[in-house]
Amino acid sequence: MKRSERRFYAKLYTVIVLCGLIVAGLLVLTLSGGAQRIRSTAANSGSNTASAMASASANASTVSTAAATAVPTAVPTPTAAPTPTATPDTTSDDSLLKIVNRTSRLDQNYVPEDLVQVDVASSHTIYLRSEAASALEEMFSAAEDDGVNLVLISGYRSYEDETELYNYYVNLYGKDHADIIDDMPGASEHQLGLAVDLGTSDGTCRLDECFDTTGESAWLVNHAAEYGWILRYPQGKQDITGVIYSPWNYRYVGRDMAMKISASGLTMEEYFGE
């Protein structure tokens, strides 16, 4: 036999032996149940993989649902600081709310810087501070539209004017009377240029308590505050203001404040706690 033939048969024999070994191994595995264990292991492995995937999916769904339904935490809104309320100026000489009385007097040299002549019915030339003059003119016009004819008796009076008037009343009625009417030097709001004495066109009850029985007085009681004016010395308040009931004496404080003070029924001293 040739060498090449011997090599061929040797390879063939080797292949036959290997095939026999593989067949024998399969027979042994089958008889011992090994194949079943392999299939069971493979099945369990696949089941565990599927279960793990399902669990992961469920967890992801839970997280997604929780994120979707979670209520966002509310961010607290900062509380705005309250706006400070300005304290009314009742002490500065040029303030519209300056209170002048026996215990809070004006210097004898004080003269308002914005005095103007008032263009209303009066027996002589009278001055007031500019804002008060405009408000008085508007009030007189409104009263006239309602058929009420007011007359301006007095407005701004200097310290010297007050001194002369005070001495006149002392000589006429005595000091006790002069001390309780609105003419004491330095203690009269006429020197502020914000106070007026009002009367009727026919002179009825001029500077007298009976002025409150006139139609002019009734109109003022109902409408003066709308134009910034208040009755400065009400009835029954002499112990507070130091001045007798003077239904003819009105004081300018500005529209908003006049409405508040008038509605309160208080004097300026009471309203501002002076």
Rank of each mutant, 00 (worst) to 15 (best):
M1Y: 04
R7M: 05
V17Y: 14
C19F: 07
I22V: 09
L27W: 12
T30S: 14
I38P: 07
N48C: 08
S57R: 11
S57M: 07
A58D: 07
A60K: 14
A60D: 15
S64R: 02
A67I: 15
T69Q: 10
A70K: 13
A70R: 06
V71Y: 04
V71G: 11
A80E: 01
P82D: 04
P82R: 07
T83V: 14
P84Y: 11
A86H: 07
S92R: 15
D93L: 09
D94E: 08
L97I: 09
N101A: 08
R105M: 10
R105N: 15
D107C: 07
D107A: 04
N109K: 12
Q117S: 06
D119K: 12
S123I: 01
H124Q: 00
I126P: 01
Y127E: 01
E138I: 06
E144I: 11
E144K: 08
D146L: 15
G147Y: 06
V151Y: 01
G155E: 00
R157W: 14
R157L: 10
D161C: 05
T163V: 13
Y166D: 05
Y169C: 09
V170W: 07
Y173W: 05
Y173C: 11
G174I: 06
A187D: 04
E189S: 10
L192W: 04
L194C: 03
D197H: 06
D197M: 08
D202M: 15
D202H: 14
L207P: 03
D208H: 07
D208Y: 10
E209C: 11
C210V: 04
T214V: 13
W219L: 08
A225W: 04
G228R: 01
P234Q: 02
P234V: 03
Q235N: 12
Q235K: 05
I240Y: 10
T241C: 03
V243N: 03
I244E: 08
W248H: 06
Y250K: 00
R255P: 14
M257N: 02
M259Q: 09
I261F: 03
M268C: 13
Y271G: 02
G273F: 07
G273A: 01
